[in-house]
Amino acid sequence: MEDFLNRLKQKVEIREQIKQRDDLYFITIKKEQTELVLRYIKDNEKFKHLSFMQAVDYLDDSKFMLIYMLYSFSRKVSLGVSVFIDRKEAIMTSMHNIWPHLWQYQREIKEMYGIDFPSSPRVNEDFILESWDNMPPMRRDFDTLKYSEETYYQRPGRKTNDPKEYMRKKLYNDFVKTPKLRDDK
């Protein structure tokens, strides 16, 4: 496995390399070299099985991470290939020519994260969501609780008490108001 990574290093730039387990490695590569790397390791290095492809939202860094999880049955090792793309210009080359079933992951990511994959088959069709008119829901700035409360009806009549506040009310409500030294959040 180390040999393979060294071979790969000579060809392309590997930005980060993590060995998580004996049978699980992660590498981070440049966005432009994705297709090259994936084709190379699929055809020449026997990482033929694509377990999945997914996106991760790094809202704070304004980036999306795309990860392609590959598996080699001859080496019995999984390899996660991750790519960072810009969050504002969320466009990625479609890899559906490399694996015929990759289009459905891309379709899902398009729907859930709003990352576009031009020329990927059926990428603009509804996949899981139907008639969705809000921002792509898996983005981290989408507040699902707020959406749910606004859209669907909650059954009324629920009320809870904080033990601390309740005990204050019951036991020592007349105790001095403390000077507020904290900033209110």
Binding site: K159, T160, N161
Partner: peptide
């Protein structure tokens, strides 16, 4: 699913908030 609500016959004292869990089976 759990709310803390005051319950009759349970007094608030120093070691006991006097609240008891109410469970929503919805």
């Amino acid at each position: 699913a759990i709310d803390l609500v005051p319950v009759e016959n349970v007094e608030t004292n120093m070691g006991d908030s006097g609240l008891r869990p109410m469970i929503d089976y919805g």
